[in-house]
């Protein structure tokens, strides 16, 4: 429905529903931290950004010219072939995983924080730098007269 909705605002709203569904899947997978971060980042920040840009550019009207039917059919066929390829490729993986013992503590904040700040400290700092540079980049791009 994100794809088929004509109005971009409806598309964003359907995308929010999809994001909440994915957050529910994270909770079912016992990854509570990921679920909370997902809701905060996507439903809280990214969707507000999308909606505000759509309102800012005043795009909430469906004046989008449709592509030809042949092109749409080709796109559907290509996406379907991609789906078949993915399922075929990933089908054989579960036998590798099945022998692992199940540990239900890894999704909690305590365990994740230990891993994040012990094994992944350098990527964490680099991602902070990345966020800073993206803030600066966005401001520089949108600013009118940078003299």
């Amino acid at each position: 429905m994100v794809v088929t909705a004509k109005n971009p605002v409806h598309s964003v709203l359907y995308l929010i529903i999809a994001f909440f569904a994915i957050a529910g899947h994270y909770i079912l997978l016992n990854a509570q931290f990921l679920a909370i971060v997902h809701i905060i980042v996507y439903a809280g920040a990214i969707m507000v950004l999308f909606l505000s840009v759509i309102m800012l550019l005043n795009l909430n009207k469906d004046n989008e010219p449709a592509k030809s039917n042949v092109l749409k059919l080709a796109a559907v066929v290509a996406a379907g072939l991609l789906l078949v390829t993915f399922t075929g490729t990933l089908k054989g993986t579960e036998s590798i995983i099945a022998s692992q013992p199940y540990d239900d503590q890894i999704g909690y904040v305590k365990a994740l924080g230990k891993v994040l700040f012990n094994d992944f400290l350098l990527p964490f700092e680099v991602s902070a730098l990345l966020l800073l540079s993206s803030i600066i980049g966005a401001v520089v791009l949108v600013k009118h007269d940078l003299k």
Partner: peptide, 26 residues
């Protein structure tokens, strides 16, 4: 990561979310 009982996968997801946020802003 949940089926493999390894926390590294969830940390990767966290980093992907960070990169996605930066990408959306730019």
């Amino acid at each position: 990561s949940a089926f493999h009982s390894s926390a590294a996968g969830q940390v990767f997801v966290f980093f992907i979310m960070i990169v996605a946020a930066a990408e959306v802003a730019v």
